[in-house]
Design a protein around this nucleic acid. Structure first.
Lengths: 192, 192
DNA sequence: AGAAGACTAGACCGATTGGTCTAGTCCTGC
DNA sequence: GCAGGACTAGACCAATCGGTCTAGTCTTCT
């Protein structure tokens, strides 16, 4: 969830990274373009050059980028896991660690970036496609464990549903316990 | 979640109802005071008279009111239920119906009103207290079914975690299926 | 070198924002 | 009736909002 610093990011990427971070912290409507520009160190003309529809385009790009990052976290978490539960547990622990790094102040990275944004069909379609990518990315691992397509999809969805609720509660409580205990919450029961 | 119309609401209540509805639909930052005032049919001076800290006070009042309403829904849902699962299922069905009534556009009433608002400790404390009231209100029913204090609390929290994630997904998908299937999601496994 | 397009820079703009404040009207109690 | 407080009403304000636009600089290709 942090940009790789091995290469100088392009202007466009700098805008996306800054927007992602600020939208997550402040929400879409609570973030002004001036803040994004200041953090990215980019002038306004550049923003409209790269994102002709302005703030709304930025939200679409932030959602896309977030989904790609989450899929990376999911893939890392499930790599080498012997079964779904282990992968999901690692995912939750990784996200709990991210939560701690973010100092407990940020909205859930998935839902904060994909469920809040401009009131436009374009964004909505983007966000939905991004979310479906995440679900598909997670379900793929379920299938690799031998789950049926349906069961894998269901498991992925359940994980994401629980993840959001848990992150939100962790945020309120200022600690990541609900994230770390999510697997037990979900699979202390689902496991079969 | 709709004001009782048996009595003419006070100016203050009109503001709270309007704010609650608009904050749920647009988010706190996405709602301007002018909109709230227009919907409530109240002049600005009145707002500052009743809510000296302005918009932030309104958010606190909206959160409190929302919690009270949700607790009412919970109590209704669990009234007469033979066990936790039945009560929780009825709660989910009631909320799914509310979702349909709201035309799928509103943020989760609990989390949208309690987790988004002014970046202030006062609001945060209010919201956290409100949420804890909801959890306690639900846990009470668990205890009435013979659950230990801890298990009842855990069950209430799990329900709310799942509820938020499900509502959010229902909102994206424009249908309440995830809300209606939440009990099976949670208790097709937890049930013991 | 020159042309064209990509990209940066920041001034400008009308609209909206939430809060402040003055001037009333209404209500209650003496 | 009068005084004081509760409450309504809306004008005013500085700041911010996101978008537009002009004027450059940089890059690439011929």
């Amino acid at each position: 969830m942090f940009p790789a610093m091995s290469e100088e990011p392009t202007t466009k990427d700098r805008l996306i990274f800054a927007a992602t971070r600020l939208f997550r912290q402040r929400g879409y409507d609570g973030t002004g373009l001036a803040e994004v520009l200041a953090e990215a160190g980019v002038p306004k003309g550049s923003l409209y050059h790269h994102f002709p529809d302005g703030k709304a385009d930025l939200a679409c790009a932030a959602a896309d980028w977030t989904a790609s990052e989450i899929i990376r976290v999911i893939d890392d978490a499930f790599a080498g896991a012997p079964d779904w539960r282990h992968g999901a547990t690692t995912y939750c622990h990784k996200m709990a660690k991210l939560f701690d790094i973010l100092n407990s102040a940020d909205a859930c990275p998935i839902f904060g970036l994909l469920f809040e944004g401009p009131d436009q069909n374009k964004f909505r379609a983007h966000a939905e496609a991004a979310f479906n990518r995440i679900i598909a990315g997670a379900a793929r691992h379920g299938e690799a464990f031998g789950m049926s397509v349906e069961a894998a999809h269901e498991a992925a969805e359940t994980l994401m549903i629980g993840f959001q609720g848990s992150w939100t509660l962790a945020r309120m409580r200022r600690n990541a316990t609900t994230l770390r205990s999510l697997p037990n919450r979900l699979y202390g029961a689902i496991a079969r």
